[in-house]
Write a protein that binds this DNA or RNA. Structure first.
Lengths: 212, 212
DNA sequence: GCAAAATTAGAGTTCTGACTCTAAAACAAT
DNA sequence: ATTGTTTTAGAGTCAGAACTCTAATTTTGC
């Protein structure tokens, strides 16, 4: 497809710059209201240049989504590996950082999905994958003694989905387009989730987490 | 400002039709991707007509928001009145119906707020009002014996905000632009919230609610 | 150094959507 | 009816955004 240099260089290409600048602008200005022209202007490159690297705006968004997924999967892998194992709250905090870094997605996902079926499919797959991972992680945490076994499947689903919904929708409540973003919502979300999950932690772990 | 007939007629004006049709289209198609032309076409009226009734698209959205607020405040009032008092879950179910009826707002609020400072202000006021109401309602429910006193203020805030975030962000997870919307997400959200709140209900009320 | 390939600039095209303007139609009050 | 007011139609304007095309420039492999 794209004639990408295979190994030879790790110098920063315009393609990379477009992606990382886009994430920044999307977070600040909203993906929906950012035009490709804005991106070009911010990088002082020409539209021709941008469209050489990406077929269209959707392709940029999809590429960013993939990038986010890969970071996420990397975190998952290390969280469940023995040497780099993460207990629940540590894991949540690390996940939240990713959510925060790509927060425009969570704010605008519905809108983006609506106008790009490809992204919509990617999103659904990722959601499925997330649910499967959560199941695995919970089992691990139970075995490690951080979490008490959750009785019924419905409660588990509830916990699962509420954590997910909260993590991804929380920021838009506490972020205002009017003023520049701070990481305060990030911390608040972590604290909320800790308090929310407390009843499901083992007494030992609960003590450890809530002492702060 | 607008030369609105004062009392004389309750016949359905185009203004009303525009509002109610817009809610429908916005829910189905997304407010962001619905143009005023779409609305005109759906009602088979001319753009001139639409712009006679509303200065611009934002004014339509703001009018709908006001309408939603009024319905909400009506519900609040009746929920706390002695004769029409509603216990927590009944109240949540009724609230959820309103959320559902205006779900496009909750899906796209961030985006809409971004491009309309007036709406943004309305939204913040409404959020504040909601928090104040929730506080009052909790106290009432404690007095009525549905809810055990929530110890610390932080837990209360957590419950409050998680209910709010869940209620308003839940649907976008379970709705796909690809297929027509069903009310299943609505029921699921209610069940989740019931399960989530269970630990804070009095044993009596909890039994009553979870029997289903 | 040179040819081929990759990258870039930037003007230009096309399209869509918000909104305007004018004239006509419908309606109301006298 | 007639005069004034409200409502409507619909063609038309304008701006912005996505995207194209061609010609230059840079980079790469040899």
């Amino acid at each position: 497809m794209r004639a990408q240099p295979l190994i030879r260089s790790k110098r920063i290409t315009n393609r990379d710059k477009i992606l990382s600048e886009s994430v920044g602008i999307f977070n600040r200005m909203g993906a929906g209201s950012t035009s490709t022209n804005h991106i070009c202007a911010a990088l002082a490159i020409s539209p021709g240049n941008l469209y050489f690297h990406f077929k269209n705006k959707e392709e940029i968004v999809a590429a960013i989504f993939q990038q986010m997924c890969e970071e996420t999967y990397g975190l998952w892998k290390s969280a469940l590996a023995e040497e780099t194992f993460l207990p629940p709250m540590a894991f949540i905090e690390r996940s939240m950082e990713i959510f925060w870094r790509y927060r425009f997605f969570h704010r605008e996902m519905y809108h983006l999905r609506r106008q790009d079926p490809v992204l919509s499919k990617l999103w659904h797959k990722h959601l499925e994958k997330t649910r499967r991972f959560m199941r695995a992680a919970f089992h691990k945490w139970v075995r490690k003694g951080h979490v008490t076994t959750v009785g019924d499947a419905f409660t588990f689903r509830m916990i699962n989905d509420i954590v997910l919904v909260t993590a991804s929708s929380f920021f838009q409540f506490y972020e205002s387009p009017e003023r520049p973003a701070t990481t305060k919502p990030l911390q608040l979300a972590n604290q909320y989730l800790a308090r929310f999950l407390e009843p499901y932690f083992t007494p030992d772990y609960a003590r450890q987490v809530t002492i702060q």
